[in-house]
């Protein structure tokens, strides 16, 4: 690592710690939430901001020490686009396998057969 001006040092550290904390909380949620559909919430949401923070830190670091650099944004954009899609597919798989839900889940489906994926 090279020497940085004071403000850049603090800002980069802030973004990295922020990102790492959110990624940690997301993984913690993956471990301790009660059922699959609830567990799905934690990683899909918290990893976007977790990786987002690390990407911001990396972008700032390389822009300050080296030439102006934005290409880490590609990773953030890519995750931003794909996280909802993989969450949606996993939720579909969970519904399809009819995994048991937490006991105080309110099921407000009026016509559950509307949402099955079986060919009938």
């Amino acid at each position: 690592m090279t020497d940085l001006p004071q403000w850049a040092d603090l800002l980069i550290s802030f973004f990295i710690v922020l990102g790492a904390s959110f990624a940690f909380i997301g993984s913690l949620g993956l471990l301790r939430l009660p059922d699959f559909m609830a567990r799905l919430h934690a990683p899909t949401k918290n990893t976007t901001l977790g990786v987002g923070g690390v990407v911001m830190g990396s972008m700032l670091y390389f822009s300050v020490t080296d030439a102006f650099s934005l290409h880490e944004l590609l990773i953030a954009i890519f995750l931003f686009l794909t996280a909802p899609i993989s969450a949606h597919l996993l939720a579909k798989a969970g519904l399809h396998l009819e995994l048991e839900l937490n006991e105080n889940t309110k099921d407000l489906r009026k016509k559950p057969e509307q949402y099955t994926d079986k060919d009938s």
Binding site: I16, F36, T47, V54, V55, L90, A93, L99
Partner: peptide, 24 residues
């Protein structure tokens, strides 16, 4: 099985963030 796939997905994302940090 979906739990395991979700865990794998999270492992991918965490390790790519770790790689970016290693770059710094």
């Amino acid at each position: 099985l979906p739990d395991r796939i979700l865990a794998l997905d999270t492992i991918y994302i965490n390790s790519l963030a770790l790689l970016l940090l290693l770059g710094i």
